[in-house]
């Protein structure tokens, strides 16, 4: 019996950090390494979930269904998970991944829009998959509002509801109150998905465990959107030192991170100014690389783009607004200089 169940999202959230260019060989190697280390659940999808391959979010180098086939082949004990955002992916995608042998469907909505997940959660349950509701940008609303949305997901049949800190903007108390309130009032499981923009991902995850969280997400080396996720190998090592059981071999987790994942993104783990700004302004982490490209294309500052997006209360999925804001900032700059 472990104290929480770790889901490794290197091959989903980490996909943002390498612009959705995972190859089947990389997937095989990462899945084999994590599985051997004892990681119980491994998520594989486009960074924006099934169907995310697009102009708006970046096209996949290899179709996610092909990557999932490689993952199915490479795993022995681990469960395989996918992410799906209603509005981007469709039910047909769930049928397809269920046929491939995927075990867990994670259905994500903005934290105030849980009712758009009903069709997908119910279908995943009907197909016999374990189902997780994923409330993105959970920092944007008050804990009691979040509980209301979590209850909706539970009522559709979710086996677990996650507090998702997509902007890496939550501090320790923000996590404690939200996870605590959900644990107290839901009969299903509760999870936390943390980002490291304020360098709090590991601490926040441990606070969540302290509040009784049943599931926690990590990514090898922290590979993920924005300044990255909670690094799996660090969370495992810290948990062991605190006497919290994960069932994962820390040395093997470190080896996979260092030897298989680190070469893909050697600087992962560095929180630079733009990464920090995401957490500070509360902006969706996967906007980062798109904002850097737009800043270069339109000759404006990445930080100005991110701060403007924060002011406009843009939500996950609105990557198109990065171009909108960049074009507007460029127009204003031109006006100011004439």
């Amino acid at each position: 019996m472990t104290d929480y169940r770790l889901t490794d999202s290197t091959l989903r959230d980490g996909s943002h950090a390498i612009r959705h260019q995972f190859t089947p060989d990389q997937v095989s190697a990462i899945v084999a390494g994590l599985d051997d280390a004892g990681v119980p659940v491994i998520e594989v999808s486009h960074g924006d979930g099934l169907g995310g391959s697009s102009f708006n979010y970046g096209f996949s180098g290899t179709s996610e269904f092909e990557l999932l086939e490689a993952a199915v082949e490479a795993r022995s004990d681990a469960l395989l998970a996918v992410l799906l955002l209603p509005g981007i992916g469709v039910r047909h995608d769930l049928h397809r991944v269920n046929d491939l042998g995927v075990d867990v469907a994670r259905i994500a909505t903005h934290c105030t829009e849980a009712d758009i997940s009903e069709q997908h959660i119910k279908l995943a349950k009907k197909l016999g998959m374990e189902t997780v509701g994923f409330l993105m940008l959970s920092h944007m609303i008050e804990p009691d509002q979040l509980l209301g949305q979590a209850k909706l997901m539970e009522s559709y049949g979710a086996d677990c509801v996650y507090v998702v800190d997509s902007a890496g903007a939550m501090t320790l108390d923000a996590v404690r109150t939200r996870v605590g309130l959900l644990k107290e009032n839901l009969s299903c499981q509760v999870g936390l998905h943390a980002h490291n923009n304020l360098a709090l991902a590991v601490a926040n995850s441990l606070v969540a465990v302290d509040e009784g969280a049943d599931q926690i997400d990590g990514c090898a080396t922290g590979l993920g959107a924005g300044a990255g996720n909670c690094p799996t190998e660090i969370l495992v090592a810290a948990s062991e030192r605190m006497g919290i059981s994960t069932g994962i071999d820390p040395f093997k987790a470190m080896d996979t991170a260092e030897e298989v994942v680190r070469p893909l993104a050697p600087h992962q783990g560095v929180i630079d100014r733009d990464g920090l700004i995401l957490g500070y302004a509360g902006v969706y982490g996967s906007f980062l690389l798109h904002a850097k490209k737009a800043a270069a294309d339109f000759d404006v500052d990445t930080r100005d783009i991110l701060m403007t997006l924060g002011d406009r209360k843009v939500v996950g999925g609105q990557e198109d607004m990065i171009i909108d804001v960049a074009a507007e900032l460029q127009r204003h700059a031109a006006k100011d200089s004439t």
Binding site: G87, H110, K313, Q318, D320, I323
Partner: peptide, 18 residues
């Protein structure tokens, strides 16, 4: 391919299409 996003900001945003 079509994508739909719901935004809860107050005051409500105008419909945007890209």
């Amino acid at each position: 391919k079509a994508i739909i996003v719901l935004n809860p900001a107050e005051p409500p945003i105008l419909m945007r299409n890209t």
